[in-house]
């Protein structure tokens, strides 16, 4: 009994340590955002200030980077979600033997270091876009190259998200719709896409966020433009300012908000499902009584 208690204590202590490792640095950084000294310091805490948030707001390069990051994120999502969706549907249609190769090709961007994706994107698209001076002037831009480079691996994330949901799809539903006279596109729009809707939402969110926080690919593909992350990298390289901590606080704030919304939505859904199940049980009971 006591050994069990010790075991439990040890597990608890380990979990505490683990999350201390995970959150500790962020917590310290969070404190420095509200402390007055120029060098981000958590201790001693001299005086409370919100100046660093104001500084952040007035940081021109960072705001420009933020704008670009949002544009890139939207662009990547616009490419990757349809591509991932199409790729997952083709995966289901493909013959068993070809499937392994197809899978390897589509998943390879996830196993390739981001720097290599960045480099290869720039080298290839520079040549493609340099076909005419006009296209070079129009398209050979950091933002566009970054979208293309990031879309390469974000599409693979999306593919995995869609595949995970598709494996649980009952193919008989497709057949039922066909049998009732639906055309193949109607089956896709009426049956498959509504079923995949939660996966589409996940793919959009995860795609946008992984684009937003990407550094390795972006730093090569962005050329002369900037994103929030490359501006940040420049700032960190040059030195340290609590304004960066302030940014982290904002990001953590947003993600906590997102996590809470997610949890609330999940709970609501659970309540709805429980209610439906109770109704089904009542119906089941009535049915048994009606026959008897």
């Amino acid at each position: 009994m006591t050994s069990k208690l010790i075991m439990k204590g040890m597990v608890g202590f380990y979990i505490f340590l683990f999350f201390f490792y995970l959150f500790g640095p962020l917590l310290v950084m969070g404190i420095t955002a509200f402390n007055t000294p120029n060098y981000p310091q958590a201790y001693p805490f001299e005086a409370f200030t919100l100046d660093w948030f104001v500084k952040l707001w007035n940081h021109r390069a960072m705001m420009e980077g933020l704008r670009n990051s949002v544009i890139i994120g939207l662009g990547v999502v616009a490419i990757s979600v349809p591509v991932g969706l199409a790729a997952s549907i083709i995966m289901n249609q493909i013959y068993h033997r070809a499937r392994g190769l197809y899978y390897l090709v589509t998943i390879s961007p996830l196993l390739t270091p981001g720097v290599i994706i960045g480099i290869s994107t720039v080298i290839f698209w520079k040549d493609v876009m340099s076909i005419t001076d006009v296209t070079k002037g129009l398209f050979y831009k950091g933002i566009i190259l970054t979208i293309l480079g990031q879309a390469s691996f974000v599409s693979a994330y999306c593919l995995l998200i869609f595949m995970a949901r598709l494996t649980r799809f009952d193919r008989a539903q497709e057949e039922a719709a066909l049998d009732l006279g639906a055309s193949y596109p109607q089956v896709f729009w009426h049956i498959l896409l509504p079923y995949l809707k939660p996966a589409v939402v996940s793919a959009v969110v995860i795609g946008f966020l992984s684009s937003f926080e990407n550094y390795n690919t972006t730093t090569f593909a962005i050329l002369a433009d900037k994103t929030l992350v490359t501006v940040l990298a420049g700032e960190v390289r040059q030195g340290t300012t609590p304004a960066l901590s302030a940014l982290a606080v904002i990001i953590i704030g947003f993600s906590l908000l997102g996590a809470i919304c997610y949890e609330v939505a999940k709970r609501r859904e659970q309540i709805r499902a429980d209610r439906a199940q109770r109704q089904a049980q009542i119906a089941e009971r009535n049915e048994v009584e009606a026959i008897a």
Binding site: E175, D179, L180
Partner: peptide
């Protein structure tokens, strides 16, 4: 989808995201 037949599947294959009425009239909708 062009044959004058209708099939009732072993697992029924009802559309879980549609209401009862939407299920019943799906063939008419298409």
């Amino acid at each position: 989808n062009k044959r004058p037949t209708a099939l009732i599947f072993q697992n029924l294959a009802l559309f879980p995201l549609m209401t009862v009425a939407e299920n019943i009239t799906y063939g008419l909708r298409v």
